[in-house]
Design a binder for these strands. Structure first.
Lengths: 343, 343
DNA sequence: ATGAAAGCGCTAACAG
DNA sequence: CTGTTAGCGCTTTCAT
């Protein structure tokens, strides 16, 4: 790989000049400019990003922490993040914590501030303490899917009103006439799905429905499958199932299929998020859509701002931690919900 | 972020010594060693990866080129790659080409050799010419899913016998008694699914079946859906559908559902790859499994070898380009295939 | 408009 | 065993 100074020599100028034309900085004579450019592609020169990063004191990448890219929501989100990041010339390093705080810390320790100049965190089961350490070392962090707009987490974040999402799902079911509905709640230790469930309960309460069965489950198709079967066995009269996420909702549909129940004829199913698969399942899943792309955009731009300001003021005062709120989740009615069977 | 020399000062030694204890190189007295270690975590020191990369003349990451992480196969593969890469201390940068050769080249240009010391290529619609440029600049490249073990691509690769995969799928259908079977072939410009289709045809021929309908389609659920409907409309007597990939196979199942056909009662469906979703669909998809994790492992280790040897001999002779072949694809019978309807 | 020089944080001989 | 001395490739004042 040719270096900057080789290009300089080839063009009969100094490295500084080459650097200048490449960055379009300080005025350079049009003549030399052309000559340099010619040498650049005569030699097939490419800037060495690591060297540049070192000299500039900043890195060309952003890190995205996810619990597992195997959960199809994350690739979708990652794609949106990548698109947004590219607009500022950043590459994205996706770090799979595998839901393990230790792995997460290892990534953070190594990448933050040296390979990446900013960190985006989704629900990756990270310790807030670790994030604060990163932050205090000067690497901005933003939480991507904070579930409670009214309770800031003490870290920059973009929030989504997931309580509302749960409420919308509940309302939809009730409006269809369901009264016996089971709930499948993602059982993250962090209680990350709690707000959604609360919203769901709020909806029930508003209509005077007091009882409903709940089952906690892993945030996977299989988790939803198991939970749904348990729910249906405990109370066969259930006519609808609400899941705090699409994956378990899909699992619930499979459970129905295996139990010989028609969806939505015998059982309605609703999820939250609106991942790609929700559109592609049969029947297509009714769900409450979260503005994924918007969240990714907000998160990246917030992170960028934090990065810029961190280079600005050395001693940044205790300005209060910023939070962005995404637009509201929206009900998307598809084919998995309908009126309850008239048993 | 504290630097190496700050740690050195704090410990009362020179940077070189600190570097030595950190890398466990040149023998260092146990006393100073402890002192240095103490300073390291007193200051919360973390090595600056970009600086280290520059000094060592090598990068701590590997690039993984994929056409779109939205296709669920890639995250699965990426996860396996990441695991393998971590064992050699590499991070992985996932580059989404979005199936666009220009985007692909842009990534390659910027990342290869500066941020990443090696490139892994899946079916990302890249120009071989671009890959050779990267290689000639000294950055090793390996193709991850070469489909024809017998026709080396002229670039290091790990091959999977996809022709055999197609053949196994065809045989399975024939053994069940199907004679009218439609095929859905991924229509990549690169003809990347051609080998699979050939294998399928070989199987038919071996049993004296001469006719079958084909439909090309995008490598997505929706593509498979559309293709299946077209196939079924063109010939309603088709009793089975073979798809060169799982995603289109899933789409075919949805088409059957919408057409009121039972799977496998009225229509059998088989795919290739065995992605996670194949297990999770209803009915679960019969498919020919490709050893994804093994391929990822082989690809990473081959790439590592190439990297090491590229540092060794400056002028590496025209040693012939290496190829690794994965173990054979295997039929996985699940619930989407059965004997043809006795019409 | 261009060049000279210093330095980013770390590693790697080679001395001592 | 530990210190000295050079860089790695690029950017960036500050001169000229």
């Amino acid at each position: 790989m040719p270096t900057l100074s080789e290009v300089a020599r080839h063009a009969g100028v100094t490295p500084a000049t080459v650097s200048n034309v490449l960055r379009n900085r300080g005025r350079v004579g049009e003549a030399t400019r052309q000559r340099v450019l010619a040498s650049v592609d005569a030699l097939g020169y490419r800037p060495h990003l690591a060297a540049r990063a070192l000299a500039e004191g900043r890195a060309p990448t952003l890190a995205l922490m996810v619990s597992s890219i195997a959960n199809p929501f994350y690739p979708e989100f990652a794609l949106a993040v990548e698109r947004a990041a590219r607009t500022s010339g950043h590459f994205v390093i996706i770090c799979n914590t595998n839901d393990d705080p230790v792995t997460g810390r290892a990534y953070l320790d190594q990448i933050a501030g040296t390979l990446s100049e900013g960190v985006l965190v989704t629900n990756a089961n990270l310790q807030f303490a670790d994030l604060h350490v990163i932050e205090s070392r000067g690497t901005p962090v933003v939480l991507c899917m904070w579930e409670r707009p009214n309770e800031p987490p003490g870290l920059p974040c973009v929030a989504v009103d997931f309580r509302l999402a749960g409420e919308l799902a509940g309302q939809h079911l009730l409006e269809l006439g369901h009264r016996r509905v089971g709930a499948i709640v993602g059982s993250k230790v962090s209680g990350i799905h709690a707000a959604r469930y609360e919203g769901f309960l709020d909806a029930l309460r508003a209509r005077g429905v007091r009882k409903s069965r709940v089952k906690h489950a892993a945030d996977t198709v299989h988790g939803g499958y198991t939970a749904a079967r348990a729910l249906l066995e405990a109370d066969p009269r259930i006519t609808a199932i609400f899941a705090t996420n699409d994956l378990p909702a899909l699992g619930a549909m499979h459970a129905a299929a295996d139990l010989g129940l028609a969806v939505p004829g015998d059982l309605s199913v609703i999820g939250i998020t609106d991942i790609q698969l929700a559109r592609e399942s049969r029947p297509a899943l009714t769900t409450v859509a979260v503005p994924t792309v918007e969240v990714a955009g907000l998160a990246v731009s917030l992170l960028r701002e934090l990065i810029e300001s961190s280079y600005g003021q050395r001693a940044r005062g205790k300005t209060k931690v910023p939070m962005r709120v995404s637009s509201a989740p929206k009900l998307v009615v598809r084919a998995s919900t309908g009126t309850p069977r008239s048993s």
